[in-house]
Structures are given as structure tokens and as C-alpha cells.
């Protein structure tokens, strides 16, 4: 996968009179593993939805820097299309479509116009890689919370996005499910995919994060390291 960077400047959004996000600046590159912490209502999920192009900010400048290209800034509707192609967002409780695990994992591939045989091969290979092959024909409504989360991550990964956003992936997960999820996330990082995880806890020592962002009442109150504009030498 190519090297790339995306920079978000001054992301702001209100809900009614309440400011949900206020002037958020951040930068992401491929293979980044970002931990985003903050209390409930601090704006983590809203920020992820904006980054994934699902929610329109009231204010934001978003710039892309492909590995060999020029810095590109677009209007929101163009940028939204690009973000939706590049970024995959997973809800805190991932939504699995009605049907089997196979149907779910194959969903993104069907949209890419692959043949039935290619889809079957890719889905089987991917499920096998993460020891989920036993679930292939299982109705998604019968899966446990941890299994749902892992199936949803694999479903996102198989579409080969540049970035995956995981909203509180470890909430309500037992130790064993967490361990399996960590393994899956470590795989994603090796695959050059950028990842943002939100969490209430610092998750110290579990994963090797490249950035830590702490949100409080819609503002970044803590950021390590301060990478602002390092890769955007304009």
C-alpha cells in the first residue's frame, strides 16, 4: 500500500447550541496507530464520523498528501467521497447485516464487482487467517459480542481501506476476546493501514500506539507526539 498522509484542521461542529467539537487539528499517515481517549460526550465518536465522511462538519480543512502527489484540498462533497473510499468506520457495537458471516464479510467485495468465485476465495482465506472459518455459515444474530467485533473488523479489512476507525472496540469484551482483537489489530498495523481506536482507558502496554490524543469537551487537551505538519512541508 502507498504512503500517504491526511491532515484535518480546525474541525468544528455544533449540535443545537452545544459545541461538540471545537477546532480539532490532527494528522494521520499510513501505519499510524492512534489512541483517542476521552470521557463519554467528549466528541470521540463524532470526530470519527467526520473523519470517515459520514458526518459533515460545520468547519474543517482537510488535505491529502498522496505519496507522490501534490497537497490536495477539496470541498466537502468531494472530500467526503474520497474519505468514504479510504476510511472504514466501525461502531462501538458493530452492525452486522442480516444473514451469515459470509454474507457480511463478502458485502464490501460485492460492491467492488468481483466475481462470485473471487469473493468466495477471499472471504474464506481471510476468515481462515483469523481463525473465524468455523463461523462462516453462522447467522450473525447468533454471534457473541467479541465474535461480532472480529467479524466486523475482518469485513472492513477485506475492502482494503487506508484507514480503519474503531469506536470503543474493547468495551463489553472479556479478556480472551480482547486478546484476539489485539492480535487482529496488530495484523492491520503490519498491513500499513492507519488505525484510530477510541477508548475510555489508556490501554497502556497493550498496543504500540504512535499517537495519543485526549479529548475533553470537544477539544484536544493532550497530544503525544505533537506531529503537527511534520509530513506536510509546504
Amino acid at each position: 500500500m502507498d504512503n500517504w498522509s491526511v491532515r484535518f484542521n480546525n474541525i468544528s461542529i455544533k449540535r443545537g447550541s452545544r459545541i461538540v467539537l471545537d477546532g480539532i487539528d490532527m494528522q494521520l499517515s499510513n501505519a499510524d496507530l492512534v489512541l483517542m481517549t476521552g470521557q463519554n460526550g467528549s466528541g470521540k465518536s463524532t470526530l470519527l464520523k467526520i473523519i470517515s465522511g459520514l458526518l459533515k462538519p460545520e468547519q474543517a480543512q482537510i488535505s491529502l498528501l498522496p505519496h507522490n502527489g501534490q497537497l490536495a484540498e477539496y470541498n466537502w462533497s468531494r472530500m467526503r467521497r474520497i474519505l468514504r473510499q479510504k476510511v472504514c468506520y466501525l461502531h462501538q457495537q458493530p452492525y452486522l447485516f442480516q444473514g451469515s458471516v459470509f454474507d457480511n464479510v463478502a458485502y464490501g467485495l460485492k460492491r467492488k464487482g468481483l466475481s462470485r468465485e473471487q469473493i468466495k476465495q477471499q472471504v474464506c482465506r481471510m476468515l481462515e487467517e483469523f481463525s473465524l472459518q468455523d463461523l462462516i455459515n453462522r447467522d450473525c444474530r447468533e454471534l457473541s459480542g467479541g465474535e461480532k467485533q472480529r467479524v466486523a473488523i475482518v469485513r472492513s479489512w477485506i475492502t482494503q481501506p487506508d484507514m480503519i476507525l474503531l469506536d470503543e472496540p474493547f468495551s463489553n469484551m472479556d479478556k480472551e476476546s480482547r486478546r484476539k482483537c489485539y492480535t487482529l489489530i496488530s495484523h492491520l498495523c503490519r498491513d500499513n493501514i492507519a488505525l484510530i481506536l477510541t477508548s475510555h482507558d489508556p490501554l497502556s502496554g497493550e498496543l504500540d500506539f504512535t499517537q495519543h490524543i485526549h479529548l475533553y469537551q470537544g477539544k484536544i487537551t493532550h497530544k503525544t507526539p505533537d506531529t503537527k505538519s511534520k509530513k506536510f512541508s509546504e
Partner: peptide
Amino acid sequence: SDQRAWETAITLGAAPFYAAITVLKE
């Protein structure tokens, strides 16, 4: 219906028309 169905379809690369079809199937 669950709003997450629409968002999930979109984030998995479905065009708005196909995302709508997905929601209707749900």
C-alpha cells in the same frame, strides 16, 4: 430501523443507492 445499517453500508464502500437497497433489505 437502525441508522448504523446505512452508515455501515456507506463505510464499506457502497454508493448511496446500494446503501439504500441494503437498508431496505434490512
